[in-house]
Amino acid sequence: MKFFVLLIIAYLLGSIPSGVWVGKLFFKKDLRQFGSGNTGTTNTFRVLGKKAGITVLLMDILKGTLATSLPLLFSLDVNPLVFGVAAVLGHTFPVFANFKGGKAVATSAGMILAYNPAFFVYSALIFIITLYITSMVSLTSMISAVLITLSTIILPFAIPGILPQFDWLLTLIAIALTIFIFIRHKENIQRIKDGTESRVPFGLGSKK
Rank of each mutant, 00 (worst) to 15 (best):
K2P: 04
L7V: 12
I8Q: 01
S18V: 12
V20M: 14
V22A: 04
G23A: 02
F26P: 13
D30W: 05
L31D: 01
R32W: 04
R32I: 07
S36P: 06
G37H: 06
T41V: 08
V47L: 03
G49M: 12
T55C: 14
L58E: 09
L62Y: 02
K63M: 11
G64E: 02
A67S: 12
V78W: 13
N79T: 07
F83M: 07
G84M: 08
A86M: 10
V88H: 05
N98L: 06
V105R: 02
M111A: 08
I112Q: 00
L113C: 03
L113F: 06
A114K: 00
Y115M: 07
F120Q: 06
S123M: 07
I128K: 14
S135K: 00
S141Q: 12
S144D: 01
L147M: 12
L155V: 06
L155Y: 01
P156G: 10
I162S: 05
L163I: 09
W168N: 05
W168Y: 15
L170N: 03
L170R: 00
I173T: 09
A174Y: 00
F180H: 10
F180A: 10
I181D: 00
I181C: 06
F182S: 03
H185P: 02
K186C: 07
K186A: 13
R191K: 15
R191P: 00
G195M: 13
T196M: 12
E197F: 01
L204M: 14
K207Q: 15
K207R: 15
